[in-house]
Design a binder for these strands. Structure first.
Lengths: 339, 339
DNA sequence: CTGAAAGCGCTTACAG
DNA sequence: CTGAAAGCGCTTACAG
């Protein structure tokens, strides 16, 4: 019983198209049509095939089908992480949309490493995916591969940046401006902007600072933290704010979770939110409307990402041009109790 | 320019093994070996192939490779949802482990629907996946398909239940007992157990009630809520508890998020946690250690799931038997401030 | 509406 | 260490 003889046993696996065809006394091509376009096969033939299929427990082999048709019905999802993301709901919407379009999704978790993302690009290109949806930084080699492969790539990104192919998202700088105006109009005068690493946050931050300077004639305070901007960082940030000479009256956070953590910390220290300290989140996650106080945050219209992505794939499938297109899905500030 | 002529253009896609072989003046088989087992090809030949590969920007086609070798290097991940899960970190660990083993993961989000899970089983079986990791309810048809396909399936489940194939998890009833004892030993006398729909929660709940009855000689109160047990349900549950005639002194939650929401509600109503109301979570998520007060919760050892899953796959790959095996990964109650 | 044939791009014993 | 050949399980024009 060596490994060679063992490997021969594999043959006893599942029935093939040809097996089904034989049993239904038709050609394999007809069975193939039965699955891909049932309306073209005669009723009676279809019935025979159907019977054979269930009798044999046949399941079409998508690997073979993909190779023959060169339509893998596969899209790759490149994302940094699941645990700390504000956007899991957006991901759910996207995968649900893809499932409805009979697309399978290949999940690639990059952990935020551009290099790992680059390697994963090689892999998904090997699967000849129909598209890759990227929501994570990718190194130059990976980008180059994507570009030269000609695959459809949808980047969830800053809608003002130059996308590899198709970019979907809001304009980070617009949000920075809007947040400054919102805070200023709300009567706040000592904002504290919490930025994370990464280009998106940077763009937002710069715009915020600029607009704040213009409106208030003075600088806002900033603090840079490491991604992911999760609940865990709340204490440290609150301590930082507390230690500032100039008293902060509003803190602008890069995520709802972080905002929530800061609210909790502030309350634990006996501060009133928003009375003593106002807090603004990002993402409009479900918790933001359930907190005490409810959280003022930004809805980045993640529900628009899935339909736009699918529409883009559709256009491509029909062979039309759509290169270098941006789709600005916008955002809206949701004013609630916390600011 | 009709669709037919357009479809012909597809041929201009990427280079194939044969193209590379021609360019390197070797047979395709040699190029194949160069990728699968480089050590068997001569240094000089390898160098020529390598040059050809990079000159042509060749990427091996995994679809073709999978068909030829019948090893797709694909595992399906069937999970209910991403947004409300306590277990996203476990999922990350698992996918990281799979990636290290050069396995690709196919993501299937069932949304908690057993029927949808069943359909997805058909799909992943069509891809002839090496294994399916299931963390979601699957209807009988889907289970039947999995069983008859003979594919390796790892269920993250109650370790006392009868798994389809391999079951990994803790024993829900053990946890129910342990929670009752923990609450009783902590001096609490009026527990409120929040259960969600689903067999797991039910098993835990029954065990809790039984043990509590034995210890305290009286019944605990129970409340059933819909899954997912998220932050959103906090207010309603707190209101329910508040409305109970008998004053509750500890509430046992099916997730950390829910526990957190209840803490926030209680505090908003002027109650002290744990003084007026103690709260116990489930999952030991990162936020549990960062809250105010820090959350007493249950660590269900998700970090053991990934290694055990991978080990199981490994054993199977070597053709060994491991059917109907349970792996009890246990749990531990993490006592912090909230109870 | 159906069949026969070529082909998708690889892998893998089998020889040499 | 390498080549020649068969085969993986489908799809898809092309005829009929």
């Amino acid at each position: 019983v060596n490994s060679v003889s063992r490997s021969h046993k594999k043959k006893s696996s599942s029935a093939t198209l040809t097996d089904v065809a034989r049993r239904a006394s038709v050609h394999a091509a007809t069975v193939s049509r039965f699955f891909s376009n049932p309306s073209v096969v005669a009723k009676r033939t279809a019935a025979r095939i159907s019977a054979a299929v269930s009798a044999m427990g046949y399941t079409p082999n998508f690997v073979a089908g993909s190779l023959a048709s060169s339509r893998p019905r596969l899209v790759a999802l490149l994302i940094s992480d699941l645990a700390h993301s504000n956007f899991n709901e957006a991901i759910e919407t996207i995968t649900a949309g893809l499932a409805k379009a009979r697309m399978n999704v290949m999940l690639c978790l990059t952990g935020g490493s551009p290099e790992r993302a680059g390697q994963m690009v090689t892999t998904v290109l090997g699967w000849r995916v129909d598209a890759v949806i990227a929501w994570a930084p990718i190194d130059t080699r990976g980008c180059e591969l994507l570009r030269s492969s000609g695959v459809t790539v949808v980047e969830i990104c800053d809608a003002a940046a130059k996308p590899l192919d198709i970019g979907i998202g809001f304009v980070q700088a617009d949000l920075g401006h809007a947040l400054a105006r919102f805070a200023f109009d709300g009567g706040y005068r000592r904002p504290h902007f919490v930025a994370t690493t990464g280009r998106h946050s940077e763009l937002r931050c710069t715009a915020f600072m600029q607009e704040w300077k213009r409106l208030a004639k003075r600088h806002a305070s900033v603090q840079q933290i490491d991604t992911p901007a999760g609940f865990q960082q709340g204490r440290a940030i609150f301590a930082h704010i507390h230690a500032l000479k100039a008293r902060v009256d509003v803190v602008i956070c890069p995520s709802d979770h972080l905002a929530q953590a800061i609210v909790i910390e502030a309350q634990a220290q006996g501060l009133q939110v928003p009375g003593d300290l106002a807090v603004i989140g990002l993402g409009n996650s479900p918790l933001s409307s359930c907190m005490r106080p409810t959280l003022t945050t930004v809805d980045i219209h993640t529900d628009r990402i899935a339909p736009e992505t699918l529409a883009a794939l559709d256009v491509r499938k029909q062979g039309k041009r759509l290169r270098k297109k941006h789709i600005n899905t916008g955002f809206s500030i949701v004013a609630r109790e916390s600011a």
